[in-house]
Amino acid sequence: MTKALVVVAVTIAVLSALYVWRSSSHKPLGQEAFDALYEAPAPKPPQTMNAMHLGHSLVSHDMPELLVQLSDGRYHYNSQLGWGTFLKAHWDPDTPINGFEDSNGHPQFRDAHEAIASGEYDAIILTEAVEIRDSIKYMDSAKMLHNWATKARANNPDVRVYFYETWHDLDDPEGWLERLDRDLEMYWEGAILRPALNLDDNPQPIYVIPAGQVMARFVREIEKRGGVGPIKSRTDLFSDTIHFNAYGAYLVALTHFAVLYQTSPVGLPHNLVKFDGTPAPDPGPEAAKLMQEIVWDVVTRYSRTGVPQQN
């Protein structure tokens, strides 16, 4: 990296940190206390799981359906989605959810407040809209994550709450991989998760599903190798510059499986069916195995997942 690029990178990092400091009105949980929350893994999960997904199109209809198949039918889910929907829009009944009818016209839809108030779920999986900085600045992401987690636990003290980390546009001017490297600690943790935890007198872990980190690791590996199977570059995981295609959905579903079940995905099937019942494009055995191995390596080296860590 040239000296000029180093200066630019440092400048962006400093400005981004300043942006977060000015944007968030909530003080983050201290680093030592934050680390301590995740020293022990999450309790062993049930093998048959009921889950609620709350988010937007980076959840999609296909990804949870792939998860059902990866779990051999032991995963049961409902969802409430929208187009680019903020956690605040899901929380506030007076805030319209863009694309609500198109996103939720299926049997797995359940009103989010009704679902979480039921106490029927083992896992609640939340994600925030990207651009993540705008969500933090304008939509009080930390408070919304806290609100949903608090409501879930009030209705089921044993529920696990998960925060699904996503990614930004492939054409992001700051660099797609560069943002994945930086944003997890700076924004997803530093400006949302840690402040959300600090709003509690007695914080309980909210576990992270690090799909963005898995994407970054997998993309670096396939691009270093010049491609694996049908996947030659990062664009082969996407249908446009941000929404995953069937290969990307499979990678994200594997990540959810590994975190939710605390189980290695190595050896899971890769010839699956999409939400609409049509065959999902098969990444093939070599690419699928690489995906599975990378997923397990990432989640067992990042304690926020709640998965038992590698020694």
Rank of each mutant, 00 (worst) to 15 (best):
N98H: 13
A211I: 00
T241Y: 04
D92I: 00
V8A: 14
A246C: 05
T305C: 09
S239G: 12
Q69D: 06
F109L: 03
V130N: 14
G175H: 01
Q80A: 15
S141T: 13
G82R: 02
V295C: 10
R217L: 11
S135C: 08
T305A: 11
P173D: 12
R225T: 08
N156H: 11
S79M: 14
N245G: 11
H26Q: 12
Y162R: 01
V20L: 07
T11S: 12
T48Y: 03
N155K: 00
Q262V: 01
A253G: 07
P279M: 12
Q309N: 12
P45V: 03
D72L: 06
P41G: 07
D94T: 15
P157W: 09
W91M: 08
I192A: 03
A123L: 03
K143Y: 11
M291R: 02
S24I: 05
L237W: 09
V259K: 01
D158C: 00
R304P: 10
A196R: 02
S71W: 06
T95N: 14
P41Y: 02
V214L: 05
L81G: 08
E32K: 13
N50R: 13
I209F: 07
Q47R: 12
D201G: 14
L197I: 04
G248P: 07
S135P: 04
D181V: 13
D183I: 01
L29W: 11
N98S: 13
P107R: 04
Q69C: 05
W21G: 03
Q292D: 12
S24C: 10
L145W: 04
A33E: 14
T300R: 14
K143E: 15
P230R: 05
I206F: 12
A280S: 13
V130I: 11
H256S: 07
V159S: 08
Y187V: 06
D92H: 05
E39S: 11
P195C: 03
R194D: 06
P285R: 02
N271M: 08
W21N: 10
A142K: 02
R304I: 10
K143C: 05
T150D: 10
A40E: 15
I136K: 02
P230C: 10
V299C: 04
V130K: 09
G55T: 02
R133I: 04
R301N: 15
I231S: 05
P64Y: 04
T241M: 07
R160G: 09
H26V: 10
P45M: 00
